[in-house]
Design a protein around this nucleic acid. Sequence first.
DNA 1: AACTCGGGGCG
DNA 2: CGCCCAGAGTT
Length: 363
Amino acid sequence: MNVARELFNWYQDNKRDLPWRRTRDPYRIWLSEIILQQTRVEQGRPYYERFLQSFPTLADLAAADEQEVLKLWQGLGYYSRARNLHAAAKQVMNEFQGQFPSTPDTIKSLKGVGDYTSAAIASFAFDLPQPVLDGNVFRFLSRYFGVHTPIDSLAGRRAFQSIAQGIIDHRDPATFNQAIMEFGALQCKPVNPACEQCPLAKECIAFRNAKVSELPVKKTKTKVRDRFFNYLWIRSDEHCWVNQRVANDIWQNLYELPLIETDAPCSLKKLPETTAWNRIFGEATFRLKKAGPDLRHLLSHQKIHARFFELTINTELDASVYRKVNQAELLALPVSRLMELFMQGQMKKTLFLLTPPSSSKIK
DNA sequence: AACTCGGGGCG
DNA sequence: CGCCCAGAGTT
């Protein structure tokens, strides 16, 4: 019995009932694939449902504001996916007259669609024999065929592409791709794979050689960098100030409180340098009320030490950079998980923006 | 080829 | 605490 047949059999008995497996609509399949990039199925599923509620069709998504798209994406991470999703929807409307592209190359011309997602859409929506290579597939193939070439190398990608191309079922590539990924996700798991009750164990090279735990081979490991974010919660009347993050850093296009980043921790006794304050306040005068809370926020490649300082101000900040918002406006803006956590904490403790600190003199 | 881009779940 | 998740884009 060949590998594809065994994967099919296993899949029939073990597949999950997932919403994007109940459709052939390329829009829905594309949406699910973008959401699921580097994201667990159970984490992405509610986002998929909410996106379809808000944007039932690709035309609805294309017509939305980016801010609305980012707000729906809030908390999911890798926000370039949301920006590219929105841009690609417009691409389909403008370059493809609203008709979702249906060949591997044209699908891949969409922003945010790379090799994996192109193959997934081509097979799931259009029955084209493009093998998907995601983390699950790399893991299964490396173990089953005993391939030690690093999966994050050019040689590795070529080798696995060739293997997958050789075993894909041309009569039903869509089900084959679903099956091989599902097998990697549920059976051939990263740690503690279920080898003892695996129907493919007797042919699995890694299992036969007791090298399951060594595969797949990956050479790059990410190192974590410490960053110190000093956020300024500047309150005046029932408003506070925010600004939008810009390119070439995390959380691009999301909103946050005015920020002073330092290369060491700060406190009320050891404040950031005055030049940093001047960049935000210019000639405006302010009064520092208190410090805290402190939040640590972990990203896969950064450890952010966030400290919040509470201030009052009696003038305006530069309106071309900063935006003055009330509570309702603030809650409508897309923000990082870190800002979300801060806002939730403040809302629990106080009435948030509705009760500015007692009016003390501003100097 | 190496980096960067989030957030969460798990042993 | 380290690893990984239905990867893609930039340098």
